[in-house]
Design a protein around this nucleic acid. Structure first.
Length: 128
DNA sequence: TTGTTGACCTCTT
DNA sequence: CAAGAGGCCAACA
């Protein structure tokens, strides 16, 4: 067994590295989502420059439960506007409840007028 | 250590 | 139009 005494720069997973982590960026964007608005995993991924890594955004949401402050993951849905992640909330109806408080209409686990409520960070934050 | 899975998106057949 | 496969990065066994 070899015991490398030298430590690499990536000794710890980037997810634990607050200096630069995909998750932190995702959280920052999600928190900046205006109330009553929603976005998609791909939009966030695209804003971060890696739209191909949309899966990581979803994975980041998985850790969002432990993230602080808590991330409004209920404002993030897939490209179809479907509440794909509702099953991962504390309760299957929690996500819909939260969206209802945002004056967002949800039916059949799909956001109504998703296109109008869609909040593209790559677009909105670009103007800012 | 490798291999599999995952709240997705897009292209191709 | 519908179904399948590829690709990305990170966590878990």
């Amino acid at each position: 067994m070899k015991k490398p005494k030298l430590k690499k720069t990536t000794e710890k997973p980037r997810s634990l590295n607050k200096e630069y982590s995909f998750f932190e960026d995702v959280y920052s964007v999600v928190r900046q989502i205006p109330k009553g608005r929603v976005t998609s995993y791909g939009a966030i991924a695209n804003y971060l420059g890696t739209k191909l890594s949309a899966r990581m955004v979803g994975w980041a949401m998985n850790a969002a439960h432990s993230a602080k402050p808590k991330v409004p993951a209920h404002r993030v849905v897939n490209r179809n506007g479907m509440l794909s992640g509702k099953a991962h909330f504390a309760t299957p109806t929690l996500m819909e409840e939260l969206l209802a408080k945002e004056k967002i209409k949800v039916e059949e686990d799909i956001i109504i007028d998703f296109e109008k409520l869609f909040w593209d960070p790559a677009k909105e934050l670009e103007i800012n």
